[in-house]
Computed example of a mutant assay.
Amino acid sequence: MQFAIDIPHFGPFSDPHLVAELAHEAEEEGWDGFFLWDHINYRIAGSSEPLVVADPWIQLAAIALRTKRIKIGPMVTPLPRRQPWKLARETVTLDLLSEGRLIFGIGLGSDRSREYSDFGGPTDAKVRGEMLDEGLAILTQLWSGEEVSYKGQHYQLSQVQFLPKPLQQPRIPIWVAGNWPHKKPFRRAAQWDGVFPLMVERALTPDDFREILDYTSAQRTLTTPFEVIVGGLTSGTDKASDAAQVASFAEVGGTWWLESFYPRHTLEQVRQRIHQGPPQL
């Protein structure tokens, strides 16, 4: 099991200097990764105050320059609201800047904060799913460095070639997020390098993960390594309880534990948990 910090990129975490320093501190304390949410806008329930929001990709560039070892990336980018060719340039550049430490987390995203509808984007989940699959096909073909032509329902490319290629080969790892019990995201995840299961109504249990991984594994035809990402919070103070909590997910196939913070958490709480270090199995 590897361990990462996962934070929003808005509110107290909108300062790129601060976020880069937090990532540096996490690296020093032995964490294995540092990931950021990816929103263009965000609404906190019950609040009418405008929220200060940073661009997570610029923040990731700052993190790449302030760290040397830890994995970095968005958790997760809603690919249907991005142009795949622009994202291809950004991901390759960030992979090179970080010397091969980028992990690309992707998903449909939602319109809960009107991140699609406020900007004229697609609100239908089926349409976003089609755009996500087409976007992944385009992105990975552009990463190849070969000439690409593509004709899909939502995107078309005509004889384009992108260089340089990513440092990581055969490609930058792609982790796919999805809300269980919807099955389509997990069939999609089986085609790539990792799965990040979520649930809207409640926190996922180890038994949920066992069911999810049984389903996902049955869809998988690749024999390459496959990461299973678990999001949660440990205390940082009760080491035995933290170890037992994480071990219960490791036993059913979890390979990454994301210490997942939310807008309600303060800078002080996040920094304190970073300095307490990752759980010890």
Rank of each mutant, 00 (worst) to 15 (best):
Q59G: 05
E90T: 04
L97Q: 02
T93M: 04
L87A: 11
Q83F: 12
V76N: 09
R81C: 08
E99D: 11
M75I: 14
R81T: 14
L97K: 06
I70T: 01
L65Y: 02
K68C: 15
G105M: 05
L65C: 01
M75Y: 07
T67D: 01
R101C: 03
R82H: 12
G73L: 11
P78K: 13
A62R: 12
T67L: 09
R101A: 12
A61N: 01
L94E: 00
R81F: 12
W85D: 06
G73N: 05
Q59E: 07
K86T: 11
R81P: 12
L60A: 02
G107C: 14
R81G: 09
L96N: 01
I58W: 13
T91C: 10
V76Y: 13
P78N: 12
L108I: 09
W57F: 08
P74M: 12
I106L: 08
K68V: 13
R89Y: 04
Q83L: 04
M75L: 12
P74G: 04
T91V: 05
I58Y: 14
A61V: 04
A61H: 00
R69T: 14
S98G: 09
V92E: 06
A61E: 00
L65G: 02
Q83I: 10
G105D: 03
M75G: 07
F104A: 11
E99N: 12
I58V: 10
W57P: 00
R89S: 08
L96W: 08
G100W: 01
A62E: 03
L108Q: 15
L94I: 02
I58E: 06
M75K: 14
A62Y: 10
L96R: 13
L65S: 04
R66M: 13
Q59L: 10
L65N: 06
A62Q: 15
I72L: 15
G105S: 08
Q59K: 07
W85L: 09
V76H: 12
V92K: 04
I103M: 07
S98A: 07
I70C: 02
E90C: 04
I63K: 01
I70H: 01
I70M: 07
L102G: 01
I58L: 14
P84W: 15
V76D: 03
R69K: 15
D95P: 12
G105L: 05
L97R: 03
P78Y: 02
R81E: 02
L79R: 02
P84S: 12
Q59T: 11
G105Q: 13
L96D: 11
I63Y: 02
